[in-house]
Structure formats: C-alpha cells, structure tokens
C-alpha cells in the first residue's frame, strides 16, 4: 500500500472510524439505551464493509440486458440484507429488555442498577 492508495480506500476508513466509535460508545456509556445505539453504529459499520467490497466503480446492478456491462457483485449486498434483519431483531430485543429493566429497577443507568443489586443482596449501600 502506498500513500496514494489511502484516499482510494476512503470507504474502509469510514468503516473503521464508525466501528471504533460504536464499540467505544458500548464500552464507555452507562446508559443502556446509549449502549444499544453504540451497538447499532458498530453493526452498521460492518454493513458498509460488505457493501463496499461488492461495489465496482462504474458497475451497474446485475440485470441481464444482453449488452456487455460491468456488474457489481450482488452477493455481499444480499448477505447484508440478512445481516440487517439480524441487526434489527437485536436492536428491538435490546430495547425491549431496556424497557423491562426500566420497569423492574426504575432506572436504566448501569451504575444505579449495580447499586440497587448490591443493596438488594447485602441489605445496605456499598462501602468504599
């Protein structure tokens, strides 16, 4: 890879940036909804990765017209359709769990939940 290739790999830089942003949000935020948001960004980055690899510059959709044309590879796009469905189910289930956690604990902040669990188990606030 030379320096001149770097702008050409533009898509992949975006993918890496999004992926790390998402992962960082999951790790650093204590709010459960924000964690889910991070997770969605993380997954979206992978969708972009797949879509980029199937694209050929100047390529069209693979429809048989009889003329010689350059096609983009449709398979990664189709795969990602499946991955999007999986992603949506995960997001929906995650948010549903957040709702249930909100009902059960009265909060969706990770540290407050941990405190409530600690109090329930040992019958008093955590001693530092």
């Amino acid at each position: 890879m030379t320096l001149a290739d770097i702008p050409g790999l533009y898509n992949y830089w975006i993918v890496i940036l999004l992926m790390m942003t998402g992962l960082y949000i999951v790790v650093s935020r204590g709010n459960l909804v924000k964690k889910i948001v991070g997770l969605v960004i993380f997954q979206t980055a992978v969708f972009l990765l797949y879509i980029s690899m199937g694209k050929i510059i100047g390529g069209t959709a693979p429809i048989l017209t009889g003329r010689p044309e350059i096609f983009s590879n449709p398979l990664p796009h189709v795969l990602i359709l499946t991955a999007i469905v999986v992603g949506i189910s995960t997001t929906a289930l995650g948010l549903a769990l957040v709702v249930r956690i909100g009902d059960a604990y009265g909060t969706i902040e990770e540290d407050e939940i941990a405190k409530a669990d600690h109090e329930a188990e040992f019958g008093g606030p955590e001693t530092p």
């Binding site: 964690k35 769990l97 939940i113 669990d117």
Partner: peptide, 13 residues
C-alpha cells in the same frame, strides 16, 4: 434482565 442485556451486548459484538 440485566444478565440477558449483558449477554445481548457481548453476544452481538
């Protein structure tokens, strides 16, 4: 619930 949530986050990653 929190166990399932943690599992969901880590499993998805």
């Amino acid at each position: 619930l929190t166990a399932a949530f943690t599992y969901l986050v880590m499993g998805t990653i």
